[in-house]
Design a protein around this nucleic acid. Structure first.
Lengths: 363, 363
DNA sequence: CGAGCGAGGGTAAACGTTTGCCCATATGCA
DNA sequence: TGCATATGGGCAAACGTTTACCCTCGCTCG
């Protein structure tokens, strides 16, 4: 990245490998080899080539390169929506890794629209990506066929088909949810509700089932469940439903953080104090979770880890023999992170010194 | 996007334009023309070509196409960090437009690291993008030279050099900030503070200057200014500094929303009630602003609008004669959006019925 | 009825790389 | 000294498109 572009500014002619070859008085083959650091090329010559390259500010044309090499060094990344707070961290991590490994990333969002999914897939194929990470929850099966057909390596989270050439990241929901449930139980909560995500989402069902299992494990009723939508609105509605119950829950576990945030927002409107009157636990640990007031106790499903795993999975597929090998699966764990949206259940709180006061003094 | 890939699944041979030509019994030229909907091609033939294309699930290789056409149909988008809540909306809108216009977007973040900026620029050049939107606030001048040198159309927000071939989006900070200041003044605030952004950012300075001007306009002291960093931490520190003042401000205007959110977080810790004890106004109107408790009154600088303008600007550069034309500039307005983080100044509030009560009843 | 013309399809060159293959030179060994 | 063998560089063929140019046909019009 020499500053030499000024000197060559008059130059308007094509700046390609041939021009470099001409000026360095070597063949294009040598230029190519020098640039790609093939060790057999004479250091003397290489230096001469690099000098010209720097002087002219030459950058190889990646398109021509991929054309002949048959590899584009592009990974596709399909998400639902960028504005979904679950994704920014993932995109950032993915890009960090891309830069590190000399890959580009082709970003695409489905915005839950079948037409957009189709165009996403088409774009991936047209640009000849070397692999696609599909991080949207729910994808038309038929479209995947198009990618599989072309032997494009794929990686899914949770929902991928169990076939060769497709890697899957399996999320262990149970682990984090058990921690959450037991944390609430330890705070003397017995009526613990769950706000579920949309029922057509595998990942939402998996979370709900984990909740049920973990409640049953410790002898609590797993039936206080209302359905949300993984958005704020669903959380707000959920709170309203829950407060209409004959016996209100004292704690709520939400299927994702946005739900919890909506629920807390509605609680604020109705003067229900979190955590004094109601303990709230989220799921995902999006960035926002620690910005909210009070900071949200939530089950972390590390987005960095997820992105890293996905990227590595693609990289593995690329280097390894693309022919039939075992369907690979990776595991992603979840863990509770404690913040300040949970407290002792209201009925017992009076017995001990105010948790909130304790905390405040601790600061 | 026919489902025909199953039938051809056995087929492992190259699926290129020649294969299509062979099967449709025409030349590659005709295939190319048919696919690109050149009107002179016989409809009969075109239909035959399309049939084969659909049957085989053929997608043209974009790399080969760009190579010969000299246009990649890729726009670069350089941002500071994806995790910065200012950007998701922008990225989403940019991608929506890209899909609409058959462009790809090459996403790159600088994470405020000169090395990354350099690699961003290199990647843009190597992939031969047709234009770059630089939405990071602050960019090494020398690197831009590399892009300008190659006549890559550029669009900046605010900080771009005023030269041909570079479009600029000028933000009218004054408008929104005046509305904010006057809104606070109307609520009887007289001691209004400003939390500035990092002093090396042009956009931060512009906001500060607008604040000063607007305060002076209405005869208030414009000197209650502390320096933040456009992050939560800066906002938290700022509140601490402000409360140490002999005479505390009753309202604070922040240089961006994250600052305001940090400040409100600190206020929560110190039991300073927003808006009862302190009115807070943000800047940007990131998505988060309306999720926070209380929802943040802020100056909106529409991210969708910004993205749309940037994209359109690039499109304009591409279609218009790339030779020297006037440096184009676009304008982006700002406007106050009222939410619930502002209220009558404390000393006067007792005189009227509680604003908060009024609001609550209104729900 | 023949020349001219226009419409439409085919041939092949070009885009900017990588890399298999071959050749020239230098080197080692007998 | 002469031959076998490395060593390193050049030539040119790919990669998969688009498109300038040419050719052929069928029509029109004189």
């Amino acid at each position: 990245m020499a500053a030499a572009c000024r000197t060559a500014f008059v130059e308007t002619n094509p700046m390609d490998i041939r021009e470099i070859a001409r000026r360095a008085k070597v063949s294009t083959a040598t230029v190519s080899r020098a640039i790609n650091r093939v060790p057999t090329v004479d250091p003397q010559l290489a230096k001469r080539v690099w000098k010209v390259v720097d002087e002219l500010g030459y950058y190889p044309n990646t398109q021509a390169r991929s054309l002949v090499m048959g590899r584009s060094r592009i990974f596709g990344l399909i998400v639902s929506e960028f504005t979904n707070p679950f994704f920014p961290e993932i995109v950032q991590t993915f890009e960090d890794l891309a830069v590190e490994n000399n890959y580009e990333i082709l970003l695409s969002s489905t915005v839950h629209d079948p037409k957009r999914m189709e165009s996403s897939v088409r774009r991936m194929i047209e640009r000849r990506v070397d692999g696609v990470a599909i991080l949207t929850f729910g994808m038309e099966e038929a479209l995947l066929e198009h990618l599989r057909y072309r032997k494009v390596p794929l990686v899914f989270v949770d929902v991928g088909p169990n076939v060769p050439g497709v890697a899957n990241i399996r999320v262990n929901y149970q682990n984090g949810i058990r921690q959450a449930v037991q944390h609430l139980a330890a705070l003397r909560h017995t009526r613990i509700a769950f706000v579920c995500g949309p029922l057509h989402l595998k990942s939402a069902l998996a979370r709900r089932d984990a909740f049920k299992a973990c409640m049953t494990e410790i002898g609590l009723s797993p039936d206080l469940i209302v359905v949300g939508d993984h958005h704020m609105e669903g959380g707000m509605r959920a709170l309203n439903q829950l407060t209409q119950q004959s016996e209100r829950p004292t704690a709520v576990l939400c299927s994702n953080d946005m739900t919890a945030i909506g629920l807390m927002r509605e609680a604020y409107e109705r003067d229900i104090k979190v955590p004094e009157d109601l303990s709230v636990v989220g799921f995902d640990d999006i960035r926002l979770a620690e910005f909210i007031i009070p900071p949200l106790t939530t089950v972390q499903m590390s987005q960095r880890e997820l992105a890293r795993t996905a990227f590595q999975a693609l990289l593995n597929e690329v280097v390894s023999d693309p022919a039939a090998h075992d369907p690979r699966t990776y595991e992603l764990n979840t863990n509770l992170v404690l913040r300040r949206s949970t407290a002792l259940a209201a009925m017992t709180r009076q017995l001990v010194s105010s948790k909130r006061e304790q905390r405040r003094r601790a600061l």
